[in-house]
Design a protein around this nucleic acid. Structure first.
Length: 563
DNA sequence: AGTTTCGGCGCC
DNA sequence: AAAGGGCGCCGAAACT
């Protein structure tokens, strides 16, 4: 039996701790400890620490060199449990959970803090509302009981445990930072953008391109202002609805080429230029704030620095320390493999049981060997494509892999009808709001503007409204993207365990890609650990299936040299 | 003047 | 005719 203890900050800089029994209730006296790190360090036998918020407690422990094996994040579990219970939007703080348990007024959640560039981690300052340890433990014990009532209790327990593990990983990655060579970054910027001019205006290359664009139009045009560009095209006799790249690409005009180049470089300048470097890179590390479970699908987000959108050219600045290397590992065709595992489609599982290119295998069976068509069809099925080649090819996909396509179709229908949709482990998609609360809207779920107002399409039986179809697409994608996120959490947890005995550190995670920074001697062991963690995560998440989860791994000094 | 939304694009 | 899902970030535009 795992040795579980609960921990809560005591307000005087110390902590209260208590041992927990199998029912989650105290199995001993509450002890006040003056030093949080020592409180944990002196109890090496504890395999899971239960606390209100990992983000509140764990960075402090890490700062003093203390790591924990496992944890249980009560407020994160509350969020997942409320969602699973169809109670999305109810306050999810531990204080709110306690109030629901005791029957008092339920306090609203405190507002989210916006990210501040370059700020020291705010996690030293307690966020949210503190609860006395005994109250916290009461909430925890109740949560354990609520797991038993889930659709699949075992999976739900795995989900909350996995996301808590993800929060440990996130905190450790936030502390480690991504190795970043500011000098290389500046060199890349100089090559792409040219010299900077005093005063913070456009760098040389952008100014030159702006001149080219203006010359092509025959008048001064500000290429960073879409309205100005659209007007300029109109004056040249060309009607464009927007200045998006895909639309401009087919326009025949001498301004198009420099305009597209301007937009590419402008993006790098404003989002990953010199001021970004100033704001986000310190002491050879880029330190974004990773946030596990930051989206409704379970994907992570980062606060600040755009860490999940680092342009490929900028990745040249990600360089391992001397004597160290980066193990860059990318899951191969993760989404269709996850779809195979959750749908249990025999044909797709058979295909996903190989480590070879899955899209090629699918195309051999259903698309006469045309890999591109197969990929478009699979992604179209997952994303709910409604037109174009994907739709046409969906029919071929449905013939060969009926159970897989039916799985996402069912999810889409459930989404349209406002029913609950869950990932494999039980993360639940917010349904359309019916009660006037706006939690789902805040979470980005498409809503009907006026659910009761008759729309023109509602007269036609069997056809959902535009908004309902949008919810259907969301739900369709949710089951795949979200189940993939479930699996990724287990992967991270397993990989973290494997790296525990090494100097290797997880430094980056992006949906289906992970980077480990390690001494060169450990590279082989890390590559093996990733492969094993992926298979273990597959078994733990989805049970015994033939589906494999291969990774492409590259051992490199520079991120840009991977793949 | 300060805050929110929009357009566009980066990544998966 | 047809807009495939999820995010974050920036400046400009629109709003208060």
């Amino acid at each position: 039996m795992a040795d579980r203890w609960a921990l809560a900050p005591a307000g005087d800089g110390g902590v209260d701790v208590v041992a927990l029994g199998p029912d989650g209730l105290p199995a001993g006296p509450v002890r006040r400890e003056p030093d949080p790190a020592e409180a944990v360090r002196s109890r090496p036998g504890v395999t899971r620490w239960v606390w209100r918020s990992t983000a509140e407690v764990y960075p402090r422990l890490l700062a003093t060199g203390v790591r924990v094996e496992r944890c249980y994040d009560i407020e994160d579990a509350e969020t997942l449990l409320l969602g699973h219970e169809g109670r999305y939007g109810e306050p999810r703080s531990a204080a709110a959970a306690l109030a629901r348990l005791r029957g008092g007024p339920v306090p609203p959640d405190p507002p989210q803090r916006p990210a501040e560039p370059g700020a020291q981690s705010p996690l030293f300052e307690p966020q949210g509302v503190h609860l006395p340890l005994t109250d916290l433990v009461a909430v925890y014990a109740e949560q354990l009981r609520r797991h038993d009532a889930a659709a699949h209790p075992g999976r739900m327990r795995l989900l909350t445990a996995a996301e808590s593990a993800g929060m440990l990983v996130a905190a450790e990655m936030n502390r480690a930072g991504l190795p970043w060579r500011a000098d290389v970054h500046r060199q890349v910027l100089h090559e792409l953008l040219g010299e900077r001019y005093a005063g913070g205006g456009e760098p040389r290359r952008l100014a030159e391109l702006a001149d080219e664009i203006s010359a092509a139009f025959g008048r001064r045009v500000r290429p960073d202002l879409p309205a100005d560009v659209i007007k300029a095209f109109a004056q040249a006799g060309i009607k464009v609805r927007s200045t998006r790249r895909w639309e401009l690409r087919s326009v025949d005009h001498p301004a198009v080429r420099p305009l597209l180049e301007y937009k590419r470089l402008y993006r790098i300048w404003v989002a990953h230029g010199w001021s970004w470097l100033q704001d986000w890179v310190r002491d050879g590390r880029f330190r974004p704030e990773f946030l596990a479970g930051g989206t409704v699908t379970g994907r992570w987000v980062t606060n600040g620095g755009g860490a999940l959108q680092i342009p490929k050219v900028i990745r040249r600045a990600v360089v391992a320390d001397p004597g160290w290397c980066l193990v860059v590992a990318d899951a191969d065709q993760m989404e269709p493999r996850v779809l195979a595992a959750i749908s249990r489609d025999p044909g797709l599982m058979e295909v996903a049981g190989r480590e070879t290119d899955l899209y090629q295998s699918v195309s051999d069976r259903a698309f006469s060997g045309d890999r591109d068509q197969a990929k478009i069809a699979v992604l179209g099925a997952v994303y709910g494509q409604t037109s174009g080649d994907g739709l046409k090819n969906l029919a071929a996909l449905r013939r060969r892999f009926p159970q897989a396509v039916a799985y996402v179709d069912d999810a889409a229908r459930a989404g349209e009808e406002g029913r609950l949709v869950r990932t494999w482990l039980g993360r639940t998609c917010p349904p359309a709001a019916r009660t006037g609360d706006d939690a789902a809207e805040e979470a980005g779920i498409p809503q009907d503007e006026h659910p009761d107002a008759p729309g023109p399409q509602e007269w036609v039986p069997g056809y959902a409204s535009t908004d309902a179809r949008a919810r259907g697409r969301f739900a369709r994608n949710f089951v795949v993207q979200g189940s993939a996120a479930d699996w990724a959490l287990l992967l991270l947890a397993a990989l973290r365990q494997a790296c525990a005995g090494m100097a290797a550190e997880l430094v980056f995670f992006q949906h289906d890609e992970v980077i480990v920074h390690c001494p060169k001697e450990e590279a082989d062991a890390v590559v093996t650990a990733i492969r094993e963690a992926a298979e273990l995560a597959g078994r733990l998440t989805f049970g015994e299936t033939p589906v494999r989860f291969p990774f492409t791994t590259a051992v490199v000094e520079c991120y840009a040299d991977a793949k």
